[in-house]
Amino acid sequence: MNALLTSAVAGLTAGGTYALLGVCAVFTYRLVAVVNFTGAAIGTAGTFVLIALYEAGFPIWPSVVAGIAAGTMVGVAIGTIMTRWFGEASASTKAAVTVALLVGIIAIGLRLTGGQHPHNMPELFPGSAFRMAGVEVTIASVLTIGLAALFTVLADLFLNTTKVGLNLRALADRPMAAELLGIRVQLLSLLVWGMTGAFTTFALMIIAPQRSPNFMTLSLLVVPALAAALVGLFRSFWRTLAGGIVLGLVEGMASSVDSISQYRSAIPFLVVLAVLLWSQREARWDEAR
C-alpha cells in the first residue's frame, strides 16, 4: 500500500506538468481555435536552449530566462505560421498542420541535440517540500501543480476582467467580426502563442530531469496533455487541471504494479478513448435508435 502511495505521489510532478500543458492547450484552443500538437515541442525547444547554455558553462538562472525567451519565440513563430497562412482554415486542417509542424520540430530538434545523446539537465528545484503520509513530496511536484493552478486562475481572471481578455474571447468566437471592429487579431493571437510557449517551457524545465531529456520524449508529452485537455472537453480550465493531475497519479500508481507498469504509457490513450466514448454517448445512442 505504501509503495502504491509513494508511486502515486511520485506521479504528482508529471501530473502537474500534464495539467499545465493541458491548460495551455485549452487556452490555445479557446482563443485561437487550434488543437495544438506542438505545445510540448515548443517547450522542449526552450528547455534545450537551457541545457545547451548550462552545458556550455553559463550560470543556471540566466540560462533559464534565455530558455523561456527561446520557447516564447518558437511559440510566436508557430503562431505566425498558423495565423498568417491558416487563420481561416478549418479546425481539423489547423490540427493537421500542427501535427506536421510537430514532426518537423522533432526532426530538427533531434538533429541539433544529437538524437539520443545523453544531456546534463540541471534540476531547478531539488529536494523535498514536505512529507505526506510518510511519503516525500518534492518541491518540483508542488511547483508544477502550483504553476498549473496559477495559470488556470490567471487565465480565468485575464479573460473575464481585462479588455484584452474580452477582445480575445470575441476573437475566439468570430475572428473576422473581431477584425472588422479594428481588433488587432494577429497581435492578440501571437500574444496567446507567446504566453503558452513561455509557460510550457518553464513546466518542461521542471519535469525534464525526471524524464529522459531527449527531444522526442519531451515533445510527445503533448499526448497526456491533450488527454487532460479532453477531460475538460477543451473548454474547462479547472477540469483540465484535475484531469492532468489524476492522469499523473494514475500513471505513477501503475508504475508500481509489475503486471501493468510496462503499459502505463498507454494510459493517456485509454483516457482519450474513454472521454470520447463518454462525451459522444448521447449522439451515438440517438443514432442507434
Binding site: M176, A177, E179, L180, G182, R184
Partner: peptide, 24 residues
C-alpha cells in the same frame, strides 16, 4: 489594407447574418 486597418481608418461593416459574439 487589412480589415482591421480599414476599420481604424473609419470603415465599419455590419455583415449579413447578425454576427454577434455569441458567448459574450
Amino acid at each position: 489594407a487589412r480589415p482591421g486597418v480599414r476599420s481604424r481608418e473609419g470603415l465599419a461593416h455590419v455583415e449579413q447574418g447578425r454576427t454577434v459574439f455569441r458567448q459574450l
